[in-house]
């Protein structure tokens, strides 16, 4: 089993996301995370899917997804030549005694405090998966109330393999 990040460029038709998600579920492929959004040209969306499987499964995923009529392009974002980012929001219970130490942890990771309430703070952090996992690990000493993760999105480095916009 290995992990792969696929980047898709798809026609922005209604139902395109369900067509792609449906393909994964009916063929028994794994989705670890999926993110989607418009590109500079709103006729297209870019979708990033993190999936895992053995070589044959990953090969089939690539071919079956490419076969969908709405899919213009699919490529693998290779780890060493791509940048990946994910955004996490974490809500931590704080009181007067530990508020400063939570903020200090956030500072070390260059995270932002985006909400402060009487008994909680919401921290926003962006980075690659390792950094986010390390950050959440550190916060486990405090009481984490809620976590929301976007799943990763990414782009290849440089201009060698630019598909569209």
């Amino acid at each position: 089993m290995q992990k792969k990040v696929f980047q898709l460029l798809v026609d922005n038709t209604s139902g395109v996301l369900s067509r792609i998600a449906g393909l994964f579920s009916r063929r028994g492929y794994n989705i670890e995370s999926i993110t989607a959004g418009d590109t500079a040209d709103t006729r297209y969306s870019r979708i990033t899917i993190v999936t895992s499987g053995d070589d044959e499964i990953l090969d089939q995923i690539e071919k079956q997804v490419a076969k969908l009529v709405d899919v213009r392009d699919i490529k693998v974002l290779e780890r060493d030549v791509s940048v990946f980012r994910e955004l996490v929001l974490v809500k931590v219970r704080v009181d007067a005694a530990n508020r400063q130490s939570v903020i200090a942890v956030a500072d070390v990771f260059r995270a932002n405090i985006v909400d402060v309430a009487k008994d909680s703070v919401v921290i926003e952090i962006t980075g690659n998966t390792n950094k986010l996992d390390a950050f959440i690990n550190l916060l486990e000493g405090y009481e984490i109330l809620e976590i929301a993760r976007t799943g990763i999105t990414g782009l290849g480095r440089g201009t060698d393999n630019v598909t569209y916009l």
């Binding site: 044959e56 090969d59 089939q60 071919k63 079956q64 490419a66 076969k67």
Partner: peptide, 8 residues
């Protein structure tokens, strides 16, 4: 004609 059949 279907690349996804090859190697499936």
């Amino acid at each position: 004609v279907d690349p996804a059949e090859i190697g499936k």
